[in-house]
Design a protein around this nucleic acid. Structure first.
Length: 246
DNA sequence: CAATCGTCCTGCGGGC
DNA sequence: TGCCCGCAGGACGATT
């Protein structure tokens, strides 16, 4: 499921391929990402937005298939294919992209997302459960089910912990885990759970690094305990009951 | 006000 | 073997 590292991978690859080309005669001036949304900026001030949700794919210079929802043709004969098996994803053209961009929390890999800022953000959400909070796009941008599980495992924090119960040092641990897990996942070009592929149809390598996500009943890589899966607000959370105590 | 619930959609896995 | 049922899952709107 495309989260920050997957969308960022697509962004980087797509920027190399299409910036400077034209779509319906309008020059593409940039490819950006905000949270899990891919943004293609056009010279006329409009932007093309994509949200891949669970099963969306953006394939460069490919052929339409069974699940193709849209095809975008560039002036040089190349194209971009939007596939989406379960139709949760969407794309749209907007005039004021900044309006949409400001609906999200800070970008976790930006330098202005500091541990001081994170401590302040959490101070305002004392009663929240930490895992759903990390997945709240208005709180922090781009983190979904895979990476919230991996971040909390790395930090040694149980997904149901209330913010109020977190010690200063535990928040520092979570902060550090956010940075390193996401950075490493971007480096590995994301995780190919379900249908995720990059624009060349290649899978991401970060799945090999998953410690808990989709590893229910398997041994914890740290202590050997069986990884557990529980439901939190309708979503599944994976964790080690020994390394991540409530 | 903030947390939780239902909804969208469809492939897939489990059970018989 | 094949059918049927129910689950998964991001984000939004409604509800409590």
């Amino acid at each position: 499921m495309p989260e920050l590292p997957e969308v960022e991978t697509i962004r980087r690859e797509l920027a190399k391929e299409i910036v400077g080309k034209k779509l319906d005669g309008i020059k593409i001036i940039g490819v950006r990402r905000r949270a899990k949304i891919l943004i293609i900026d056009l010279i006329n001030g409009q932007s093309l937005l994509f949200h891949l949700k669970l099963t969306g794919q953006l394939l460069f210079n490919s052929q339409p298939g069974k699940y193709t929802r849209a095809v975008f043709c560039f002036n040089d004969g190349t194209n971009l294919i939007f596939n989406d098996k379960i139709k949760f994803g969407w794309w749209k053209k907007v005039k004021n992209v900044s309006q949409i961009e400001k609906q999200f929390g800070p970008e976790p890999l930006e330098d202005d997302f500091t541990s001081e800022k994170f401590q302040q953000m959490l101070a305002r959400r004392k009663n929240a459960k930490i895992k759903p909070l990390l997945m709240d796009q208005k709180f922090i941008a781009g983190i979904g089910n895979i990476y919230s599980d991996e971040i909390l495992f790395k930090a040694g924090i149980h997904p149901l912990r209330r913010v109020v119960s977190l010690k200063f040092n535990e928040i520092e641990q979570i902060f550090g885990a956010i940075k390193i897990v996401l950075k490493t996942a971007v480096k590995q070009r994301g995780s190919s759970i379900r249908d995720y592929l990059d624009i060349y149809g290649k899978k991401g390598d970060y799945g090999k690094f998953h410690q808990v996500y989709h590893r229910e009943n398997q041994a914890c890589p740290k202590c050997g305990e069986k990884i557990k899966r529980i439901k939190i607000g309708g979503r599944s959370a994976h964790f080690c009951p020994k390394c991540q105590k409530l």
